[in-house]
Each structure stands twice: as C-alpha cells, then as structure tokens.
C-alpha cells in the first residue's frame, strides 16, 4: 500500500513538473513571438479594411507607436471622417480622443472605435506576454500550438489558441475565445515580409468572426521600425498632439 502511494505521489510530481515545463516552454515561445512580431518599442503604419459580404470595403489608416510591454498609442490618418482620432492604452486603461469632443474619454477594450470585426484591443494590441499566460503547448507537424489564458479579467479575450510556425516562431493562426468558451474571432497571419532592421514578420492579418458571418477585416502593416520615445508621449494630455510624432 505504501509503495502504491509512493508511486502515485511520484507520478503526480512528474505530471506537475511536466505541466510546469510545458507552460514555461509556452511562455518562452510566446516571448519570442512577441519580439519576432515587433520590437518592444516601435512605430508603424497600418491599414484596416472592413469587407462586407457584398464586397463593400471601408478603409482606415493608423499610425501607432508603442513603448515597453504595455504602452501604445494609435492615431487615425484616414478616412477624413476619422482623421485626428487617437487612442491610448496603458496596460488595462484605454482612452479615446475625438477632435470635435476635444478631450479624451475612457473606453473599454471590447468596444470598437471603427466598427466591424476589429475591436479596440485588436487596434491597441500590447505584448501577448503582458496579457496572457501559456497553460500548455501541443505539437503539430509544422507548428507549436499554445493554449493561452488571460492573466486578468480585464483582457478582451479570455483564451487564445495560437498556432506558431515552428521554424520562424511567428503566429500563423490565432483563435480568440470568450470566457464562456465561445469562439469570437480567428486571425490568420500571412505574407511574411522583411521590414528592415532585422524585422521579418507577416504583413497581413486577416480576421473573421462567427459573430459577423460573411464579414472580414484585414490589417496591413507598413514602415514598422524600432523607435524609442519618452514616457510623456503615452499620456492623456499628449493624446491630442500624437501627430507631432510623425516625421
């Protein structure tokens, strides 16, 4: 009986260590995914295209700067109806500045300032490691599949399932789930390009959602490069002046 108990205990310890190692590996992969996608501090331009089932498109162009793991600001450059809008994210805090309103107001990560499939959390994405913890890794032929769980209840998607290219350590596909287990959206990473400065990553992210059947959103990246900025840029008072950062 005693040896039986000892064996069971040993199995439990091994399983625990195995699980912990897996999670640790997962977080290590996730950390590499973050840095392969973007430098920790950068500037970039993005075009967001919302495509309706009949093919009608609406496009937005954003300029973004990020610092550290959880500070990011995005400025709308087009279309003219949205030009000058700016959004700021500091960890779980988000604000929106609309030129007509003239002052920033707090918004939530699940809202969408542009409508369509993308929400604020997609536009103001911070490092995956800042928001998610890897609970496990399974292996497929060409990919690691990470099971990610949100670190807090403030995060837009409770769980992510991320397929990571085994050679490039870049995401290929991400499924985003609500706390209820419902699939909210799927992101497909495509078109790997060299952005210079050692940055080689997908230049296109296509998103579809079972909540918006037939609709699709596409995010295109351009001029992504490393840039260091002072902390004062990532403040409420600076939000109306973000466009000054563009060179």
């Amino acid at each position: 009986m005693k040896s039986m108990l000892t064996r069971l205990l040993a199995c439990a310890v091994l399983l625990f260590i195995g699980g912990w190692t897996h999670a640790a590996d997962g977080n290590e992969i996730l950390k590499r995914v973050d840095r392969n996608l973007e430098p920790e501090s950068y500037e970039m331009f993005r075009k967001l295209i919302n495509i309706e089932p009949d093919g009608t498109k609406k496009e937005f162009v954003l300029y973004s700067v990020k610092k550290g793991r959880d500070k990011i600001v995005a400025l709308f450059l087009a279309p003219p109806s949205d030009k000058g809008r700016a959004t700021l994210r500091l960890g779980d805090n988000m604000w929106l500045y609309i030129p007509n309103v003239g002052k920033p107001v707090r918004i939530t990560s699940l809202q969408s300032v542009i409508g369509g499939v993308f929400n604020n959390a997609d536009i103001l994405r911070i490092d995956y490691t800042a928001e998610y913890n890897a609970e496990g890794v399974t292996e497929e032929k060409d990919a690691h599949v990470l099971a990610l769980k949100a670190r807090t209840g403030e995060v837009a998607y409770d769980r992510l399932k991320m397929w990571v290219d085994r050679k490039l350590i870049l995401p290929v596909k991400i499924e985003a789930y609500a706390a209820s287990g419902m699939l909210i959206k799927t992101l497909h990473f495509k078109d790997i390009q060299d952005f210079g400065g050692g940055i080689r990553r997908p230049a296109t992210v296509e998103t579809d959602s079972p909540l918006y059947k037939g609709y699709k959103s596409v995010m295109l990246y351009s001029q992504l490069k490393k840039r260091e900025l002072p902390d004062e840029v990532f403040t409420l008072n600076y939000l109306p002046r973000v466009e000054d950062l563009r060179k």
């Binding site: 331009f45 075009k47 351009s222």
Partner: peptide, 20 residues
C-alpha cells in the same frame, strides 16, 4: 484577394486642411 499597403503617402505634410 491580395492586399498591399504603402504608407509613403501618409507622411506628415507642412500644411493640412480638412473638416466637414
């Protein structure tokens, strides 16, 4: 469908005019 995006046309200009 393939998409492309070049941000060159969105560089900052010395003058700007918009509105409604």
């Amino acid at each position: 469908e393939t998409y492309s995006f070049d941000a060159t046309e969105f560089q900052k200009k010395p003058y700007e005019l918009n509105g409604y």
